[in-house]
Write a protein that binds this DNA or RNA. Structure first.
Lengths: 206, 206
DNA sequence: CAGTTCTGGATAGTGACACTTTCTACTATC
DNA sequence: GATAGTAGAAAGTGTCACTATCCAGAACTG
């Protein structure tokens, strides 16, 4: 198919597709002439993935570039893909954390048996969140986190089951990306709904 | 205190504080002369909250403005604050959802007894996520959501308990904001850690 | 009390980001 | 043969969150 058909099927404007091609988010089509190229279903599929990462996951163009770079390197160890996706989703610089918060996070990780993850970007980000809470006078915030961690562990088990059960071998990587990014968005939405429900029950609906 | 001291204590540059004042994120100091004003602890506290909403919660300046607007309107019903905060955290326009996805979300809400929330922005966002998953060929994604919802409900109960137990009466609203925004960030970080742990256990660490 | 620093307020400028627009030379199609 | 579409390059656009500059006046400093 040609670029206009790719545009029509995906809903992405032609100039934007050209932009994604320039940025390496989409591989070039097969050249069939000096100014003609042919795109296939894999381009359409990739384009949809790119838009989902941007629109649903809120990833930047550069972050999407990293993710698709990993997807195209078939020799990357499966387990490593998760790290790249997760790094792409977080902020580049985790918020600064003080020692007390770091210690609280370290203790939490130890309680769960998640040792050796203390220098993971997510752990640093978590310590930054705890620090921010303390600065706002919420010193008991960290005590909440065990419950959060318990819930997260259950969800993570689900995510892995989903990927291993439903994905064909040749797109385990893509499934992990989808489960991570869309799962994040879905969880955030469900948390809002659950909060509203709990709040309505306790404080009275309005 | 004067603006330079407010800047020093908060770590926010003076020009940025002026900018926040202009945008209404921070109330003006008490004027003590033609070009002098006095700021108090409540300004420092508010400034820290604003930075937490921006840095940790990722809210835009406009969204922070809405949130602090609600915080300053003491006559707003407590239960409504949550709605404003949640709206500020999501995207303005939820992603488009097809009917099948909407039906799946409606069924999920019914199973949980969360009726009447079908037109909540979070429910629309969730339907949009399901639609995106379907477009990517992940039709079984919605089946995951019951587990997500169960976990979310547990967390929401925790959040409410936290606010009601630890907050003084005069800052229940601020505590709800903090619990919502920082809780979101903490949950996201813990989810990443839990995923890595689960992935390492199942696929072998690397 | 002269000189430097700081202040609130207004206006203009900056850099990053994600596109859009415009252009050119060529190709496909009616 | 006229019209529309195409690849690729370069320049432009709008938004966002600051950041810089200016000004008249106030405040500390020696």
């Amino acid at each position: 198919m040609r670029i206009s058909e790719l545009s029509r099927k995906s809903g992405v404007p032609v100039p934007t597709i050209k932009y994604y091609l320039r940025e390496g988010l989409l591989p070039s089509g097969e050249r069939t002439g000096r100014n003609q190229a042919d795109y296939g279903d894999e381009h359409l599929r990739r384009l949809k993935l790119v838009r989902a990462l941007i629109d649903i996951g809120g990833l930047s163009i550069a972050a999407v570039g990293e993710v698709v770079g990993v997807l195209e390197n078939a020799d990357v160890v499966t387990h490593q893909v998760l790290g790249v996706v997760q790094r792409s989703m977080g902020t580049d610089e985790p918020p600064p954390a003080d020692r007390a918060s770091q210690d609280e996070v370290t203790a939490l990780l130890a309680r769960r048996g998640w040792d050796g993850m203390a220098d993971d970007p997510a752990a640093l980000a978590l310590a930054g969140v705890v620090t921010a809470a303390r600065k706002l006078g919420h010193h008991r915030f960290a005590a909440q986190l065990d419950a959060y961690a318990e819930a997260s562990a259950g969800i993570a088990r689900q995510d892995l089951d989903y990927v291993l059960l439903h994905a064909r071998v040749d797109d385990v990587l893509e499934s992990m990306v989808v489960a991570t990014v869309l799962g994040d968005a879905a969880l955030a939405a469900l948390r809002r709904l659950a909060q509203r429900d709990a709040s309505a029950r306790l404080l009275g609906g309005g």
